[in-house]
Write a protein that binds this DNA or RNA. Structure first.
Lengths: 236, 236, 236, 236
DNA sequence: CATGAATGAGAGTTCATTCAT
DNA sequence: AATGAATGAACTCTCATTCAT
């Protein structure tokens, strides 16, 4: 079975992703240029994660990269574009999280679980950046579109997975596959955001309690809700 | 049964709401003052919904309200504070959406559905504002906290509902009530956002397809997923 | 002998003083008015002493006086004018410090000392206000003139005293009476400022040592320097 | 002998001077930058002397320096900081007034006189700026502290001089060295202020008389009062 | 006389972007 | 390619003063 649960935010189709953000420039010609560009992107990630997208000033980035203001414009047009470049780099890790796909089993629950775990691990690993993307998607329509595109691709695929399961009599036939896919995919990514991002940003300053949730609990609950929602158990 | 499905964003406990944003000033002493203040809040909502939080200039608001910049500062300290006031006003509508609570039935499914429908209707009615809140919560930590607080109250309540159902043998006992509540509440509010807000913002400019989702489908799917996830049907 | 050492800042000729600051308005007609005006002046002193002249906002004063902004303009034209009114009131105390004039003695040193002590006591008593006047005289030319006029009157009188002593062979005849009067009067008022005002404002935040000077030491040193400078001792 | 009469305002210990105002930024990297910065400082001095500290607008300064508002902030944080820079430059001249120190003589009176003359000449040369500093010290606590620190260093040194003279039997032993140093140092600087600054500011608009004091008279009187106060003459 | 809302010119400050070196 | 100074439009916020009630 091919269900790849989840992910409104990332897919592994690199093609459309950056087209959305618009035309990264052609790569630097000289190795020196490549080095500078890379330094800028790395610095940008650092600064964005430290200060947030809005508060990051271009000069913060160039300072962090040990280069001049002018050099920035040799490689990027503006903040938006370098943020896209940061995403580009991180995408690698989000996309190929090295999850040993549980392909050998036919147990849908096991597949679901593996998929969720892989996603949540990647999310946790890139939590700061995911938070950033969330922020930026709410600020810059271009990134909202980007985010949306990726999500839609995922949703579509999961929707096909659901359909398949329905056809095989394993999943609740009353559910609309697309809408259900949207709902459940969104559920996991939102939960990931709440647990891995917001807990760090919001909760820490606000709560005294130990509301930290165990990672395995998140995996288990996400998976079980998916499975329940689709009524896997009814097979039995 | 007392489950009041969902809502990460609003609850009907007025107390903590504005305390978070801090101290609205004492209300105007004269009717004239009250009128001006109200005009400003209304203008603010208009401008915010038109331009978004970040692009809204204070002068846009005063212009819209037909008053001077100075008057703005008679009633508010800054953009943040007037946004809180806008929320304050809208809260009313979100809180008491006039849902005829299905109290006469003991059917958990019916209760769930009524609750979801009421929530989704209110969300749709205030879609622009909800989108705004989402944006601002990602920009201003104060509003992130505000949003979080409200959500937590809701989640806690729904968690108790779930526990109760578990005790009565109606709901899947394997699920952690709090985490499940978080996941499912988040699912509905995220879905609402995607359907009522993002579709307007993102889709319109980007999609040619008729991705508009029928309202009733959203109600049905949300409810069914909730019910399935908790395994209501197992009773039968 | 008639020497009345010191004071660049105050004299007992009330007449010219306020003319300089310009026309306090005619006093309120009704007793209620008088009360409001008095409240404003008292409040102004409080606020000025708390925040300094520049940082004192008119609304701070009216708030402190429990009256409306509008009322302020019933009695004063602006901040300058109410400050003049504050000075007017305090002048009383600076002018008639209840010093039992040592008239019965012919010992110039004793007279000097009594005069200095009386001045320094009054200065210390009104230290905050004196500091304020110093500040304002450096900001508003009108008050610089006011201050100058008062000082000049004093200097002139002391100059006459010095002349007299020179004539009697008690004081150094090489000294120009007016310039000497200026120098020595200025010395005492500056010392008073440094000890009673600046020590509180500047030193406290900056020094850990106990640089507080004993009041009697100030009296003694001032007096002895005056006496030495004029060469009283040469008589012996 | 080592007495270096007077000066509450300036000393030649460069160390603590600017530390007080805090952290001038690192100097411009290019000559062009250095030119702009210098132009700004010069313009600032002009504008400050023309309009006073309070009335000087940042745009007045940039206009005078023929540069944009932005450039100002390339080199300074605010008005306070550029004022410190103006002082920094002028300090040079106040510190090393080219006074041919009368080192060859052991006559305390001659030393005193030379010292006073040098100080008063420097004061007169920088009269406008000294008036400015006086004003600013009464407005901005940072500069009050700065002024105080410098004065204290001077006072301490002169106090040691007085002590030495007392030990050698040349100066009145009844006087407390520190307090006396304070009083007499203050006397000269205040006199200088009155004669060189206030006469220009206040008198011009207010007096018709020819109150202009001869420079040599000021030197003579200051010196003689110092000498008398310490009872140099008693040696004879 | 008292009230307090309304006014609006004008100040400081930020920072993305340009461009001469 | 790299530098970093220069730019200036744009924005927020203050507060003395006015005036209708």
């Amino acid at each position: 079975m091919t269900i790849h649960i989840v992910d409104e935010d990332w897919d592994d189709q690199p093609a459309p992703s950056m087209a959305a953000t618009g035309l990264l420039r052609e790569p630097p010609a000289t190795p020196r240029g490549a080095r500078t560009r890379a330094a800028l992107v790395a610095a940008a990630r650092t600064v964005f994660e430290r200060s947030g997208y809005l508060d990051a000033r271009l000069t913060d980035i160039t300072k962090e990269a040990n280069c001049s203001t002018g050099s920035f414009y040799t490689y990027f047009d503006n903040k938006e574009q370098i943020f896209a470049a940061v995403l580009e780099v991180a995408q690698e890790d989000m996309m190929h999280p090295g999850m040993k796909r549980v392909q050998d089993t036919d147990d849908p629950y096991a597949v679901l679980e593996a998929s969720n775990r892989a996603y949540l691990e990647a999310y946790r690993r890139n939590a700061k950046l995911m938070g950033l993307l969330e922020q930026v998607a709410h600020i810059d329509p271009n990134f909202a579109v980007l985010r949306r595109r990726r999500a839609d691709a995922f949703i579509a695929r999961n929707a096909r997975g659901i359909e398949e399961l329905q056809a095989r009599g394993i999943a609740d036939k009353q559910l609309d596959p697309v809408l259900t896919s949207r709902a459940l995919s969104g559920m996991v990514s939102r939960l990931a955001y709440n647990v891995f991002v917001a807990n760090g940003v919001v909760a820490s300053r606000d709560r005294g309690d130990g509301t930290s949730v165990e990672f395995e609990d998140v995996v288990f609950t996400s998976t079980r809700i998916w499975a329940n929602a689709l009524r896997f158990h009814d097979r039995d």
